Computed example of a mutant assay.
Amino acid sequence: MSDLPRHRPDPASSTFDLSRPLPARLLGAHVAIGNFDGVHRGHQSVLAATLDRARAEGRPALALTFEPHPRTLFTPDRPVFRLTPPEAKARLVAALGLDGLVVATFDQALASLSADAFVEEVLVGRLGLVGATIGWDFHFGRGRQGSPAFLDAAGRRHGFTVDVVDPFGCEGGAPVSSSRIRSALEAGDLAEAAGLLGYRWFVEGTIVGGDRRGRDLGFPTANMHLAPDCRLRHGVYAVTITIDGERRLGVANWGRRPQFDDGAPVLETHLFDFSGDLYGRHAEVTFVSYLRPEAKFASVAALIEQMHLDGAEARAVLSTIGSGSALDRALAATEGVGEASS
């Protein structure tokens, strides 16, 4: 989406819990429905169709999503690598210009609803929508009995429109999908991931204290614990890091620190030309380029030498990146806004 709306809602004030009544101003909306993990270019085509319909009719545009990811309920022993946790998803939906993100808790009660009950209780009863927009492969209700054709027929009975968006393909013709993006990130292929997403992948979290080893080595770091399901390739990355709305350049290591303890994965980001206490601050790290795999060196001195090389390479890469896509720029306008709330 190259031409994004100039007015973008604040994600912190435009995220709503489906279990609570929606503000009256959002009733009668056109609603995009889906999990939207990644809010990638295929999802963006669904959201754009919703926004176009809503603006043409002077109505609100909403996205309805489900948390946690349905696979968390159905296959808890195989956690899914989440591309966009709820806060990130809210920022993306806001950056794309929709008026709000409605979050439905995906639990056994929701999973047990029949397709008819989902339409009557959720779409009509709670959302009061006038139109639904879905992807071509969207299914819903107990046993996935609700198909696009089923929803279209239900819309005719209940008086709301249904738009079904065709698969969105990228170069080469293969449809854009969350699974393709996960595979790209697992391989450290950030260019592939960004091409499919339409923006540079990012993570958010709180900066925590570490063992201060980076400071002792001459490379103090801001440390973050990512979700246990994160399967980003371990290694060294050129990154940007935003804290309290201020963006800085840096180099980050994501991994287990094989030189020292080979422990639990930690994201350690060294901010260029910065000194100060960042503990407890909220940060966003955007991954720009994969530099090398994590490795154990012959000595700590050899590691330090490589860290200097990594920093120089990261600076060189970051000096040429520009401001990114239109969505990257829209996201930058919402950095530091704060966590979403209902």
Rank of each mutant, 00 (worst) to 15 (best):
A54R: 03
D216Q: 13
P148V: 04
Q259K: 05
H7I: 12
T84F: 07
A302P: 05
A264K: 11
G42R: 07
T221E: 08
R6C: 08
F118V: 03
G324I: 03
S341R: 15
E67A: 11
V165F: 08
G97I: 05
A283E: 04
A115N: 11
I243T: 11
P148F: 09
Q108F: 08
G159A: 13
G155F: 00
D261E: 11
G97H: 07
R215H: 12
R256K: 05
R142P: 09
E171H: 15
M224V: 14
R126N: 08
A54Y: 06
L101T: 05
P23S: 14
H270L: 06
G218R: 10
A194H: 03
P167W: 00
G125N: 12
H234Q: 12
L127M: 14
R25M: 01
D229L: 12
A252L: 07
A63T: 03
S289Q: 15
G205H: 14
F74L: 14
R91G: 13
A238W: 08
L113M: 14
D37E: 02
P167A: 10
E246V: 15
E268F: 01
R315N: 01
G159H: 09
A333H: 10
A90G: 12
V162N: 10
L271G: 02
G128F: 00
L113F: 04
D10M: 09
E67V: 05
D166F: 05
Q145Y: 10
L331H: 03
S183Y: 00
S289Y: 06
D37P: 00
K89L: 02
R329Y: 08
G173W: 07
L18S: 10
L226S: 05
L18K: 08
L64F: 01
T133M: 09
A264S: 12
C170P: 11
S289A: 15
D37R: 04
P220H: 08
L18P: 07
G322E: 10
V317P: 03
L303Y: 03
R142F: 14
R91M: 11
G97W: 03
G128H: 03
G34A: 11
E87S: 13
A109L: 12
P9A: 08
